[in-house]
């Protein structure tokens, strides 16, 4: 875009306005106490119902363990599972950190050069849509059964996702706001930090959240593919030993981690990006 174009006023920032709201599963609005009570009641009904029905029909534990058995296994096995939980967190955090860092940096730089962006975008799209999990066996061949193949897979899964969303954010240039900053003599760097970055933040947070969930997925998948540690490895171990209560206890931990990722970015968005609703 030429510097000389008169910005259009009154229109929304160009390039789409997908905020965190669109993935917030309706969590945006405040809930009343009654609503929370109903949500809890549903949980009690489902868990209690499962407990009762599984006992009534005498469903064998290797098909589906009772909620009480899962809870007991969770408490009992926690000391054994905890280190593996730690290994998974290490894999996820390092892979996510590397991937998101590179993704953000690339998005910020590439959107400054429309030509480069046009050339690179299809390849990034391929990276986003290809399940990076598929590469894990190959990575294991090359890097062995340690952290390395897992962290590479996780950063490959998160990086492009973060990048493509952040790029959408950085592309939403509002030339009127940039002109405002320029009229006060703002430098290119000031325009980036004071206008472009805050404007891109809602989209960046969406990218980080989805990237985080993708990262968790890839972490577990990579751990299942090989190597003797991590929560994914626990899943394959417990299922091969038909220890279903322990298996489901690990699933519980994983869904807790997923929800935590969501909640963290939801709260960050509420604090720093709530101007866009």
């Amino acid at each position: 875009m030429s510097d000389d174009a008169i910005p259009e006023f009154g229109s929304k920032a160009a390039g789409g306005g997908v905020g965190l709201g669109s993935v917030s599963l309706g969590a945006g609005g405040g809930r009343t106490l009654a609503e929370i009570a109903v949500i809890l009641l549903v949980a009690v009904v489902i868990i209690g119902g499962l407990e009762f029905l599984l006992g009534w029909y005498q469903v064998p534990e290797y098909v589906l363990p009772k909620p009480s058995a899962i809870a007991a296994a969770f408490v009992k096995e926690l000391p054994n599972v905890a280190p593996h939980w730690g290994y998974s967190v290490v894999t996820l955090l390092s892979g996510f950190g590397i991937g998101a860092g590179i993704g953000l940096l690339l998005a910020a730089v590439i959107t400054q050069f429309p030509f480069v962006e046009k050339v690179i975008t299809p390849y990034i799209l391929i990276l986003v849509t290809t399940p990076m999990l598929a590469l894990v066996p190959l990575l294991i061949l090359r890097f062995g059964f340690g952290y390395t193949p897992r962290i590479i897979a996780v950063s490959l899964a998160t990086g492009p996702m973060v990048m493509i969303n952040a790029a959408t954010g950085f592309r939403r240039t509002d030339s009127a706001k940039i002109a405002l900053a320029r009229s006060y003599g703002a430098s290119v760097l000031q325009i980036f930090w004071k206008i472009r970055a805050p404007m891109a933040l809602p989209m960046i947070l969406v990218g980080l959240m989805v990237g985080g969930i993708f990262g968790l997925l890839t972490t577990v998948g990579a751990e299942m593919a090989g190597g003797g540690f991590g929560l994914g490895n626990r899943l394959t171990t417990y299922s091969s030993m038909i220890r279903m209560p322990e298996f489901f206890a690990v699933i519980l931990i994983l869904s807790g981690m997923g929800i935590l990722i969501y909640v963290i970015f939801f709260l960050i968005g509420k604090k720093w990006a709530s101007w866009e609703t």
């Binding site: 006023f9 009154g10 009127a176 706001k177 405002l180 805050p198 404007m199 933040l201 101007w275």
Partner: peptide, 12 residues
């Protein structure tokens, strides 16, 4: 000093 069409405030 410059005043724009519309307020052009930074919404964040």
């Amino acid at each position: 000093g410059l005043v724009f069409q519309e307020a052009n405030l930074l919404p964040w």
